[in-house]
């Protein structure tokens, strides 16, 4: 039970002179229940990659297997796949359209052809999971605050009960408080349900604290694919491709460069503080 990408290539505008290679020989394995961060700056191919996971984009070459089945197989039901791999786009609140929040969240499960009772049950469940208070359920989605709108939109995908949830820049445009709240909620969701969650982001700080594994994309290729600690060891290389490692990592490297014998593996402020205290004691 997993997603496997086997030598996937994707070329934009393949038969035009403006062809751009957006994905270059991607091989990936995404086992069940992992919390993964995909990092890269704009144009690195990260959004293109996740749109392959639910079959929205079709690879120019290569294969993708979902739970052992080839999704490009002629008999494969790709519409069903979209219910299994839920994709939340950037600024998802821009897709809200119904008269109230609840009806909007019902849109996804309704499209799966479920009966009314099941649809409403799922919608209710999804709204609870994203932490939206009950009194907002029957309000117009356009009257909510920015953070609430985003939650409602995430619930809209969650209500399809996907096995894999992919979120493209879920914190874009939110203020620090909103960012922290959303990320926290996603983490809770992941540990609570055990579903696979893939978080696409350009911010290392956002991701470092939460995920089990980081995939760094650059120019359509996978640059690193490892646990956060290992990935952040490549401080200089990350900076070279325009990605700042979390600031603490950078600070620890700087302190080390200046002669403090400090362990640079820390990814959070707490860990870093411990490491510095330990190093200072040694002097």
């Amino acid at each position: 039970m997993s997603i496997i990408l086997d030598h996937v290539n994707y070329i934009y505008g393949a038969d035009t002179p403006l062809a751009v290679k957006a994905l270059d020989d991607i091989c990936l394995q995404i086992p069940d229940g992992q919390f993964i961060g995909i990092i890269g700056h704009t144009g690195s191919g990260k959004s293109t990659l996740v749109q392959h996971l639910n079959g929205l984009l079709k690879a120019t070459s290569g294969s993708i297997y979902f739970n052992g089945e080839d999704i490009y197989d002629r008999d494969y039901d790709r519409k069903k796949l979209r219910g299994k791999v839920g994709l939340v786009f950037q600024y998802p609140e821009h897709q809200l359209f119904e008269i109230d929040v609840f009806t909007d969240v019902c849109f996804g499960p309704k499209n799966l052809g479920l009966d009314k009772k099941e649809v409403e049950l799922r919608a209710y469940d999804a709204l609870r999971k994203v932490g939206l208070p009950d009194e907002l359920f029957y309000q117009s989605p356009f009257e909510l605050s920015g953070g609430q709108k985003r939650r409602a939109a995430i619930a809209g995908v969650l209500a399809m009960k996907p096995e894999v949830l992919v979120l493209d820049e879920p914190t874009a445009g939110l203020d620090p408080r909103g960012r922290e709240e959303i990320l926290h909620q996603i983490k809770e969701l992941q540990t609570g349900t055990g579903m696979t969650v893939i978080l696409v982001s350009h911010s290392m700080e956002d991701v470092a604290e939460y995920v089990d594994r980081i995939i760094v994309m650059n120019k359509g290729r996978i640059l690193y694919d490892n646990v956060p600690k290992e990935v952040f060891r490549h401080c200089a290389e990350l900076e070279e491709v325009g990605l700042a490692p979390p600031q603490v990592t950078y600070i620890l490297h700087e302190l080390r460069r200046r002669g403090l014998d400090v362990d640079t593996d820390a990814t959070t402020v707490e860990e870093a503080a411990e490491a510095v205290v330990k190093a200072m004691a040694k002097r």
């Binding site: 700080e205 870093a272 503080a273 510095v276 205290v277």
Partner: peptide
């Protein structure tokens, strides 16, 4: 708060 400021505070 910038992480460096936070780190100093923690220290």
């Amino acid at each position: 708060v910038p992480q460096v400021t936070l780190l100093a505070y923690e220290l």
